[in-house]
Simulated assay, not measured.
Amino acid sequence: MRTSIIVQNLKCGGCATTITNKLTELKNISEITVDTNSSTVSFIAQDANDALEVKNKLKTLGYPSIEDTNGVLSKAKSFVSCATGKLAN
């Protein structure tokens, strides 16, 4: 099933690279696309549990969904994830 999640703290290609690389590691997740203009992460998941796993992974990377709290810790994590993604390019 195709799923899209609107996330917070998604700023640039570095963020998109980190998100794509980390979500690719998850089982049952494919066709990952990240749109920095709309802050949307789209993917195909086998079922709702797999989609929830993606949502939780995004949160641990510092990119919580729009309905989740976006505290200082999330913002700091996204900064690190962004820098890591820029270095990977």
Rank of each mutant, 00 (worst) to 15 (best):
residue 45 A to L: 04
residue 62 G to Y: 06
residue 57 K to C: 09
residue 45 A to P: 03
residue 11 K to M: 09
residue 13 G to D: 13
residue 60 T to W: 02
residue 66 I to L: 12
residue 77 K to Y: 14
residue 58 L to T: 01
residue 56 N to H: 11
residue 37 N to R: 14
residue 33 T to P: 10
residue 80 V to D: 12
residue 55 K to H: 06
residue 44 I to P: 00
residue 3 T to P: 00
residue 48 A to Q: 14
residue 84 T to G: 05
residue 65 S to K: 11
residue 4 S to Y: 03
residue 76 A to W: 12
residue 88 A to T: 15
residue 73 L to P: 01
residue 87 L to Q: 10
residue 53 E to T: 15
residue 43 F to Y: 13
residue 17 T to K: 14
residue 3 T to R: 13
residue 69 T to S: 11
residue 15 C to T: 04
residue 31 E to K: 15
residue 78 S to Y: 00
residue 60 T to Y: 05
residue 81 S to N: 01
residue 37 N to S: 10
residue 61 L to K: 08
residue 88 A to N: 14
residue 88 A to V: 14
residue 45 A to D: 02
residue 16 A to G: 08
residue 69 T to R: 12
residue 62 G to E: 01
residue 79 F to H: 10
residue 42 S to W: 00
residue 29 I to P: 04
residue 81 S to W: 02
residue 26 L to T: 05
residue 51 A to K: 05
residue 48 A to G: 10
residue 43 F to L: 03
residue 67 E to A: 12
residue 88 A to I: 14
residue 24 T to M: 11
residue 57 K to T: 15
residue 74 S to L: 03
residue 4 S to I: 05
residue 27 K to R: 09
residue 50 D to G: 02
residue 14 G to R: 09
residue 16 A to K: 02
residue 85 G to N: 08
residue 31 E to M: 03
residue 25 E to F: 00
residue 29 I to N: 01
residue 38 S to P: 00
residue 20 T to Q: 13
residue 67 E to H: 14
residue 17 T to H: 13
residue 80 V to C: 07
residue 30 S to N: 07
residue 36 T to A: 07
residue 10 L to D: 06
residue 47 D to T: 06
residue 45 A to Q: 03
residue 31 E to D: 12
residue 6 I to V: 09
residue 63 Y to N: 02
residue 68 D to P: 00
residue 16 A to F: 10
residue 59 K to M: 10
residue 43 F to V: 08
residue 75 K to T: 14
residue 89 N to C: 13
residue 23 L to T: 06
residue 68 D to H: 12
residue 80 V to N: 06
residue 29 I to S: 04
residue 65 S to V: 11
residue 83 A to I: 09
residue 20 T to K: 12
residue 48 A to F: 04
residue 28 N to G: 04
residue 67 E to Q: 11
residue 78 S to R: 00
residue 1 M to W: 01
residue 79 F to T: 14
residue 25 E to Q: 15
residue 32 I to A: 07
residue 56 N to G: 05
residue 52 L to K: 15
residue 80 V to P: 09
residue 43 F to I: 10
residue 33 T to D: 13
residue 14 G to D: 05
residue 39 S to R: 04
